[in-house]
Amino acid sequence: MIEQYIPIFLVIATAAVFGAAVVFSSKLFGPQRPNDIKISPYESGKKPVGNTSERISVKYYLVAMLFIIFDIEVIYVYPWAVEFKSLYAQYGIFAFTPMLIFLIVLELGFVYVYMKGGLKWD
């Protein structure tokens, strides 16, 4: 069983080495001549105005929260999806109805968010 995962670890290690090599390669080969203008933030050639620690619209946080809720539901569907054929052979239609109810409840939650204006962008 663990043999299956040896290749995965090898791939991850190789990808990490490769990624680090690419990211640091220009430190080796490129010149290093920074000056004040060069390292200031890019603003179309003008003097930078303000800073980046301003507040971000709350809508983005709302999206993040909705994502967590709905993405967790995806994980609940997966084990059922893997076993669906054998469950159907065993229980017939009753392999499907519980998941249908689950999906309807999920959809109701989604409609609630929709009605509350949680997905509104203007």
Partner: peptide, 26 residues
């Protein structure tokens, strides 16, 4: 690109600035 200067902006968070392209490639 290999022979170009690697410019790190002064206002950047340097460890994360380097980590980000690494994560993308990895």
């Amino acid at each position: 690109l290999l022979l170009k200067e690697d410019i790190v902006p002064e206002k950047s968070n340097k460890p994360l600035h380097t980590l980000a392209p690494f994560i993308a490639l990895f």
